[in-house]
Design a protein around this nucleic acid. Structure first.
Lengths: 223, 223
DNA sequence: ACCAAACTCAAGTAGTCTATTGAATAGTAA
DNA sequence: TTACTATTCAATAGACTACTTGAGTTTGGT
């Protein structure tokens, strides 16, 4: 139990940090927080070459952050533990609050984020209980099926233009997506507001909702 | 708001992760979670050369994780935000729970950790309220002064042999130190138990106690 | 048995990170 | 001014990391 044991311990913990110390691997994690996926799906979603995505995923696997399971001919990767989602959330929070540069990058990526109203988890819960809030999940159907907020309806952002008119006129339409580093809910909210409806954005994602004690529903899109 | 803005955003967040992706910088952070210190103090405590410690600290500063303030001739580094301590805690938790290798390294660094009884924050609170628990802070006095659990007494591990007899015989002696990656509380507990007293170790450190809603006391050693 | 699909592996190059050394700077004290 | 202390800076060699390309492996279908 000397210094070399201590160094070894910190060395191992640092290896986990190294695994998340790469922008592409963070994007892969952010995708996997939403839903398990195959290597090819992940490569496409993150605009990586197949071999590159595979290698990044293996690095995450070696660090114990994700698990890859063979399902017939494909390999399905998923988060190894909900703690991994918490780690990613905490990293994002620190980065956003401590580096002004990250805040500026967020403004560039999500130019509308300060213009639009936001709403808290607590107020959404109350609104759902009263029945005067409609929760709109703007993510791809795949992610909605893997887990969504109770009572949320699935309208992937690319389907919203033709399904906008099905939304009630008198409710508050609350949009959400993958969370702080995702624009889908912003774009959905833009269309909602442009249609004359009232709306707000929930900043949290499904993982954060769940961490805040919220129940998560699974299963197919209700039609 | 295209892919390049998204890539830039992930790039910046990854820079924060890179800052913690080094064993020496993690050790520096672990020290700074306990108390602010000068470059020289940090270099000595982490067994780094002065120039090397300085460079690592600057990297942490650039990532917004620590702040360095000139105080006369020395520069005092401290955590930039309590969120940084949470990030380090979360990283440690994920590493310990997901990598069996980390668990083994912990066993080597803290061989007694499974032999000795542990106690939860909740039970310590109750025991303190009843008055049948003595809380022993085994860290250096500097760290005790920067913040300790309410009612804890300071007996740095190197002073324990000669102050052991001042501890009551009939109370439960609960030891704590910097947390999961620190052996001081183990060593203190070993001596406490060897003296025929009852004892237990608190795994949490001051930062985690505080995150769990506990109050933290500041100020000099009570004699 | 053979083929195709979905991944993984190996090797190479360009780029990045680390620790050390010795020099430079900013405050303090005489 | 000068000397001294605490810290930072600059340069460098050696060690890792990332992405690409092309070849290899495993599974399922025909």
């Amino acid at each position: 139990m000397g210094r070399s044991d201590k160094e070894h311990l910190f060395q191992l913990i640092a290896q986990v940090a190294q695994a998340i110390a790469n922008p592409h691997r963070l994007e892969l994690l952010d995708l996997l927080v939403q839903a398990p996926r195959s290597v090819e799906q992940l490569a496409i979603a993150s605009a990586l070459s197949l071999a590159n995505a595979s290698q990044h995923l293996q690095r995450l696997k070696r660090a114990g952050l994700v698990i890859g399971e063979r399902q017939g001919t494909t390999i399905r990767y998923r988060l190894a533990d909900p703690g991994v989602a918490r780690l990613w959330t905490e990293l994002r929070r620190v980065a956003v609050s401590q580096l002004a540069e990250v805040d500026r990058a967020l403004d560039r990526y999500r130019p509308a984020r300060r213009r639009f109203p936001t709403i808290s988890v607590k107020d959404v819960r109350a609104g759902l209980a009263r029945g005067d809030v409609v929760l709109l999940d703007a993510r791809p159907a795949l992610e909605y099926e893997a887990g969504h907020l109770p009572g949320a309806i699935s309208i992937p952002i690319d389907q919203l233009p033709r399904r906008l008119r099905t939304l009630p006129k008198n409710a508050l339409i609350v949009t959400y997506c993958r969370g702080a580093v995702c624009v889908d809910a912003d774009e959905a909210l833009e269309q909602v507001l442009a249609s004359g409806r009232r709306g707000a954005r929930l900043e949290e994602n499904v993982a954060e909702w769940s961490q805040a004690g919220g129940r998560v529903e699974h299963g197919a899109v209700a039609l």
